[in-house]
């Protein structure tokens, strides 16, 4: 761990702007800047996660879930020493400093987190009705941005919340049905293959998730997995 001092931090700066300030300073001094990942800076791309003072994305005591880029410096005390660490999990190798490689998530999605039917043009709005509760649940689960905070916070380094979000999203919708039970098996097999740990229902994941993916999506995944044992693949 290296300690840097950052001056002139405004309370309105985001956490990443504070890191920008640090890096400008380091560049001027001819030192190596601190590598960190980011893209949208508006909480929708999932690139920016780091562990801040022991909490993934750094929400700390605040009840409001957040991404690192949406965390503001007013959440910290003036002059405070802030501990910043990368996601620490075997399947997320550190590329440099705070940047980690999350492509294990891409491979989990590639294993079944999609539908293969060619849906063509947008169908007639009432052609395939989806109940309001199911639609809401699918939408809630679909908001996962793949940031990896769930893995970073999990004592087992399990990616179950991430995987369960995609399983739940597609399991609630008509398009997801044909491959539903094949999907859960292949995605879980890839999850294990990547070296993520097994879920023991501790619940740290849902606490740090910036999108508040519900903890109960994991039970949805387990239900589909149990059902898949009694069904032919893909049925």
């Amino acid at each position: 761990m290296v300690t840097y001092q950052v001056r002139d931090v405004s309370p309105d700066m985001s956490f990443l702007e504070m890191l920008d300030l640090l890096n400008e300073d380091l560049t001027v001094k001819g030192e190596e800047p601190v590598a960190f990942d980011h893209d949208c800076r508006e909480g929708i791309c999932g690139m920016c996660g780091v562990v801040i003072n022991g909490t993934a994305h750094g929400r700390g005591d605040s009840p409001v879930p957040t991404t690192t880029c949406q965390l503001h410096m007013r959440s910290f005390e003036d002059g405070a020493t802030i501990d910043v660490e990368p996601w620490r999990a075997g399947p997320f190798p550190v590329i440099k400093d705070l940047a980690v490689d999350r492509s294990a998530f891409d491979r989990i999605i590639q294993a079944g987190g999609f539908i293969s039917a060619n849906t063509g043009a947008a169908p007639d709005a009432h052609a395939a009705p989806v109940g309001k509760l199911k639609a809401d649940r699918a939408f809630d689960a679909a908001t996962c941005i793949g940031c990896g905070a769930c893995v970073a916070a999990c004592p087992n380094s399990s990616a179950m919340l991430f995987t369960a979000a995609k399983i739940t999203h597609l399991a609630m919708l008509p398009q997801g049905q044909p491959e539903r039970f094949l999907r859960v098996k292949s995605m879980l097999a890839q999850h294990d293959e990547e070296g993520f740990g097994g879920c023991t229902n501790i619940g740290e994941c849902a606490e740090v998730c910036p999108k508040q993916i519900p903890f109960d999506t994991i039970s949805q995944l387990n239900r589909d997995l149990i059902s898949s044992l009694f069904k032919k693949d893909g049925k």
């Binding site: 761990m1 501990d83 075997g90 399947p91 380094s157 399990s158 070296g195 023991t200």
Partner: peptide, 27 residues
């Protein structure tokens, strides 16, 4: 088996780690 997988998936530990949800029993 679960323990082994968790150890393999956790090669390094955080210098600072806060617990938000886990209970003493779960830990």
């Amino acid at each position: 088996t679960l323990w082994k997988r968790a150890l393999a998936a956790n090669p390094s530990t955080y210098a600072a780690k806060r617990k938000l949800a886990q209970t003493y029993s779960a830990r």
